[in-house]
């Protein structure tokens, strides 16, 4: 597998094989993020397409300060947020995404998942994005800050707010409010 710098260099030169390789390395994650952000296969398809077209168009602007994957997340999230803001009916869309995992035995687990995805669909796009980047995609606070183009020190408080909204929407034992964090969120030094 070519290293990232070399891959980006070849993409800049318009090398189709390199573009395809970059797509192959990242598309599952990008598509999964967009699918869960929009709850629509069609929207996820279109947004993935525009994400990669924009990425290849702007590959010269990639400065290498973040990983190329984080840079793609940034483009994908921006594309998704634009769509969600444009679409007044986005939250009411028919959910196409079935939530069950093949082979999962526990019906209870499925119910939890359904609730979580329903609640996720009720959040603002920014809240959805930060939760998915953290928990589905596994980005740390620094990478989230790069992807969302926000101050790293605000990531914790944004997450707290998004989690609080999720818990309020989920109700029951989830409903207890996670107190909002303030700006000076202690963080590890590493």
């Amino acid at each position: 597998m070519p290293d990232e710098q070399e891959l980006v260099k070849r993409c800049r030169a318009g090398d189709r094989e390199a573009q395809r390789e970059l797509y192959a390395q990242t598309s599952e994650r990008i598509y999964a993020l967009l699918l869960r952000m929009t709850s629509s296969r069609d929207d996820a398809f279109d947004l993935s397409q525009s994400t990669y077209l924009r990425a290849f168009e702007r590959i010269n602007q990639f400065d290498g300060k973040s990983s190329v994957a984080t840079w793609l997340y940034r483009i994908a999230v921006n594309e998704a947020l634009q769509l969600l803001r444009r679409s007044a009916t986005a939250r009411g869309k028919l959910k196409e995404l079935e939530t069950r995992q093949p082979g999962d035995a526990g019906a209870g687990a499925d119910i939890v998942r359904m609730d979580i995805d329903d609640a996720l669909g009720q959040l603002d796009g920014d809240e959805r994005a930060i939760l998915l980047l953290r928990y589905q995609e596994g980005l740390d606070y620094r990478m989230i800050a790069e992807a969302l183009e926000c101050a790293e020190g605000t990531v914790g408080s944004r997450l707290n707010r998004a989690r609080s909204r999720m818990r309020a929407l989920l109700g029951g034992s989830y409903g207890r409010r996670e107190e909002e964090d303030v700006g000076a969120h202690p963080r590890s030094s590493g």
């Binding site: 598309s27 598509y31 397409q49 995404l97 093949p102 609730d115 928990y135």
Partner: peptide, 19 residues
């Protein structure tokens, strides 16, 4: 639990016609 629920990946594969 909430984090685990959010972490569950979608089973949907990338549509073959996307590329």
């Amino acid at each position: 639990g909430l984090a685990s629920g959010l972490a569950l990946p979608s089973v949907a594969g990338v549509p073959s016609e996307l590329w």
